[in-house]
Design a protein around this nucleic acid. Structure first.
Lengths: 207, 207
DNA sequence: GCTAGTATGGACTGGCAAGTCCAGTCTGGA
DNA sequence: TCCAGACTGGACTTGCCAGTCCATACTAGC
């Protein structure tokens, strides 16, 4: 896998994205290597040339690819949770992203196929969750800095709860088609953060 | 499929539970019909006798089986959310259930395999979520009745948010092994419900 | 204890899809 | 220009596994 020609790199990328697209559209369960080949106009030998471990390696690459997208799709809002309108705008972006995505979650799909067998797949998800939560927590800390959130609140725990709400909301949307749960979870999470302040400094400063 | 002998019913049940167990232990992806046969000391013809549509029908039956368990495992607490200690006790039960369950979620696993192809699988999940949410909402309403929760809160939306938190917490636990998110989500959700009251009827009534 | 229908064993088929192989082409650097 | 190594095509092997089939054994009601 050393020394990729420009052409080679392009082919590899084509295969990767073709697989990702196919999975987005049909799920991982019925993705066959031949499907990918047909879609990307490549051949078996190419696929195994760029992904020597075959299907498993390809799937792992897709997982990484999709994991990166998840956070990118939330930018720039996710990295800039510095005011309530910013939080709201982020919330809207998340809802919108998953509304668009429809019923198939490539990442969930791929990791649940690779399963616990592959430590690699676990690692991808773990890191994604970690980064995601960290960015939310940073936002919480910032708001604590400006006095908009009760400083007594644990930012990591709050971020964890919010993240769980998002994941669950998305999961429910995948399986039932309803986006309400995602919205409700985000709204409740943010409302809770906002409310913390009024509880921390209750009577005389209702903003 | 009419006229099941007692013996026949037992065999059918054995196959069903054997499949469920195997899926719990190894995931659905590497569950082969022969695995189930070996584990349950049955033969191909029996399996197809009781599940004429083969693998797919069996998987669907497993999904139903597991869906029922989910709510049952939360009883009696889930049906009796009538005081804060009761909520707390329910919260503990949920956390405990999923902590025990480990890294494989049979239901998520099965439905993501059956995918969107089978409308049946969707239906099972949809109904589960619906019932689950309804039971939580009932608890919220009850607490509103006794004045422990702000009556201005939408019970269904609150229940939706809480449910999303649970689902996400479980999902994260499946993929990362951490139970913190589930705990955080439940705690935050319940805290939010409790706090609503103090906001609704605060000291000096600023609303 | 007859018999119709139920239950069971397990060999066999068929197809699909992952992965291998080799022969042939292209590319870039010296 | 030359050649080592990258790139490509696609036939072939291999193994697995869902689903079929038929012969046999059991059971329940009459």
């Amino acid at each position: 896998m050393r020394a990729l020609t420009r052409k080679g790199a392009a082919t590899r990328q084509r295969i990767l994205e073709g697989a990702a697209t196919h999975i987005r559209e049909h799920g991982v369960a019925d993705m066959t290597l031949d499907d990918v080949l047909a879609r990307t106009a490549t051949s078996k030998s190419q696929l195994f040339h760029y992904f020597p471990d075959g299907r498993e390696e390809l799937l792992l690459a897709v997982a990484r690819f999709e994991a990166d997208r998840v956070l990118e799709d939330q930018r720039p809002q996710l990295g800039d949770l510095t005011s309530w309108p910013a939080w709201q705008s982020w919330r809207d972006k998340v809802v919108d992203r998953y509304r668009r995505q429809g019923r198939l979650c490539p990442l969930n799909s791929v990791t649940s196929q690779l399963g616990s067998r592959t430590p690699g797949a676990q690692a991808v998800v773990i890191e994604l969750m970690h980064r995601w939560q960290a960015e939310i927590a940073t936002g919480v800390r910032h708001m604590q800095g400006t006095g908009e959130i009760d400083p007594g609140l644990d930012p990591d725990r709050a971020a964890a709860a919010l993240l769980a709400g998002i994941q669950g909301g998305v999961l429910i949307q995948m399986s039932t088609g309803q986006i309400d749960h995602l919205e409700a979870a985000l709204d409740m999470g943010i409302a809770h953060l906002r409310a913390s302040k009024s509880r921390a400094r209750p009577p005389t400063t209702p903003s």
